[in-house]
Computed example of a mutant assay.
Amino acid sequence: MALLSLLAGVALGLSLAAPPGPMNALIANETVVRGWKAGFRAGLGAMAADAVFFGLAYGGVVAFLQHAPTLQAAMKVAGGVLLCYFAYGAARSAHAGAERTDSGAGFRKTFLAALTNPMQVVWWLTAGVALLDPGTVEAFGYALTVSNGALTIVGFFGGILIWITGFPATLRAAGEKVASLERVVGYASAVVLVAFGVLFVAGSLPVLL
């Protein structure tokens, strides 16, 4: 049962970290521009935001958001504008080449973007609350009955750590074989970020207007 709880936590962490979205676009862009360490640090920024969300869920703030649609909409606008700004930076880097300084920039980007990312908020309003449920964990559409507790939480953050370690490593390995990967990933990241940014802002307008 202890092993099952740990593995369920890992699956839950991967179900948050692995799906395509703006966070992985930011991690990918940091990786191809500044290297594996920068991509890993960007992943740590998103992971730190999840630690904040976990604390808020434990304190009941996430449950409060379930009944605050206006606040959720405002977060969508803030997150959407932030992603569009990051998209501009990614496109500019792909076009002209990025400065390889300020190694902490990726961490700050993903941390701020994750805190206002509606996808991340929705995950914590749904699947994420399973970390506080003593009996159920749902990941990738499958529900498991486990003895939740410290092991599940450790597994959850372990799953995220596995992803933010392996994903940049895979990109760097691919970059050594594809000379133009940096520019391709840079432009692709910009497209993904601006698409999600516009989607988030547009989705919030019916609530705010």
Rank of each mutant, 00 (worst) to 15 (best):
G89M: 09
Y88A: 13
H95T: 14
K76A: 13
A74L: 15
G21A: 06
L26Y: 01
W36F: 10
L82I: 06
T101H: 10
A98I: 00
S93R: 05
W36R: 08
G55L: 01
S93G: 13
G97A: 06
K109A: 10
L115N: 01
R34Y: 04
R41P: 07
V33L: 08
G43C: 02
Y88F: 12
E30H: 02
A91E: 04
A57R: 06
Q72D: 05
L56H: 03
P22G: 10
M75F: 15
Q72E: 09
L44G: 11
G104H: 09
I27E: 04
A87F: 00
F40A: 03
N29Y: 11
P69L: 08
S103C: 06
A87D: 00
K37F: 13
G60P: 03
P20H: 03
T116E: 06
V81L: 15
R108G: 15
M47P: 10
E30W: 01
R100T: 13
A25H: 04
E99H: 09
G89E: 10
T31D: 10
A96P: 10
F107Y: 05
L82C: 11
V33T: 14
L65G: 09
A25M: 02
Q66E: 15
V52D: 07
T116G: 08
G55D: 04
R92K: 15
A98Y: 03
G60F: 01
A46I: 02
A68Q: 14
A25D: 03
R34F: 01
A42K: 01
F64N: 09
